[in-house]
């Protein structure tokens, strides 16, 4: 009996067994390996020397000069800053652009809503690389954006590649990729919203903006938090937008990790960067859980 199985503690563990096994083998163990590698010495032929060393983390902040002294090197911090900045800005833009879309869809009749939500998810049907290449053509020289900008004189002849290979191009790529992940959870929370509350607010002297601010947004907060996490976390680790749209000189943390494991063959440093990235992700998740528990408590009180 499946109902009986989950009633005893032993049965509960048994029922959770497969899930725990998958999480353990495919997530916790690899994470452990990654953290372990980050504390080892690199081997110049790839792989690692099995020897404890914090040198990978030191390398993130310092470099050795010709006299073998440690010198502060902010290069990797710039990359971290660019990653946080671009991911944060992309999240903000996704919210500002995604919330009205979710609101619009929720206000349609039910049969139209399903069609519109389906349209929102359509980009996921195409391979991410192909979509990124499409953006190269759109943003690149003589593309549909570059040509009118040059014609208007906004962009001078010195910008040989248009806005391709700039931070802006990375930002556009990030927003484009993750916008649906903002719209869907906000839509889900707005759909559960009782629209009579909107009427009640307008009955109590709220114009549309005041109703939004004091009723709709507070009640949609769980969905907004979820959307922010769903956009910010993968955007922080994204490397495809940066690699294809940012050119070779504008790395994000994701590119740095990829580079260390492939070309640079410095596994410990790559692992260390990945651990640093993970810390930021865990921090934002913790903030999310905290906020969500607070608003969740308020809503269920």
């Amino acid at each position: 009996m499946s109902a009986g199985l989950t009633e005893t503690p032993a049965g509960r563990w048994l029922a959770l067994g497969p899930a725990l096994l998958v999480i353990g083998v495919f997530m916790l163990v690899p994470l452990g390996i990654m953290v372990t590698i980050s504390f080892m010495e690199p081997n110049v032929y790839g792989g690692v020397h099995r020897q404890f060393s914090p040198s990978a983390y030191v390398q993130f902040l310092y470099q050795r000069d010709f006299d073998d002294n440690l010198v502060f090197n902010p290069g990797y911090l710039y990359i971290l800053g660019r990653s946080l900045g671009l991911a944060g800005l992309a999240t903000l833009i996704c919210f500002v652009a995604g919330f009205p879309v979710a609101w619009y869809i929720v206000r349609r009749p039910p049969h139209q809503r399903n069609v519109l939500i389906f349209l929102v998810t359509i980009p996921f049907w195409t391979n991410l690389l192909i979509r990124a290449y499409a953006w190269i053509i759109i943003l690149g020289r003589d593309g549909v954006i570059d040509t009118p900008l040059r014609w208007l004189g906004v962009m001078g002849p010195e910008a040989s590649n248009g806005i391709l290979y700039t931070n802006w191009a990375i930002l556009i790529g990030l927003v484009y990729t993750y916008l649906p992940l903002m719209i869907l959870p906000i839509y889900a929370s707005l759909e559960r919203l009782d629209f009579r509350l909107f009427e009640a607010a307008s009955d109590l002297y709220s114009n549309k903006w005041a109703s939004m601010r004091h009723v709709v947004i507070p009640l949609a907060l769980p969905g907004i938090f979820a959307g922010v996490i769903l956009v910010f976390v993968p955007a922080l680790g994204d490397f495809i937008s940066a690699q294809l749209l940012g050119g070779s000189r504008r790395l994000m943390l994701g590119n740095l990790v990829q580079l260390q494991f492939s070309t640079a063959r410095n596994w410990p440093f790559g692992a260390a960067v990945a651990v640093i990235l993970l810390l930021f992700v865990v921090a934002s998740m913790a903030a999310y859980l905290r906020l969500n528990r607070k608003t969740g408590l308020e809503l269920s009180k």
Binding site: R196, L197, E199, A200, A201, L219, T295, E298, L299
Partner: peptide, 8 residues
Amino acid sequence: QHYALFPH
């Protein structure tokens, strides 16, 4: 009819 009190 169903009061429509603001739950938050």
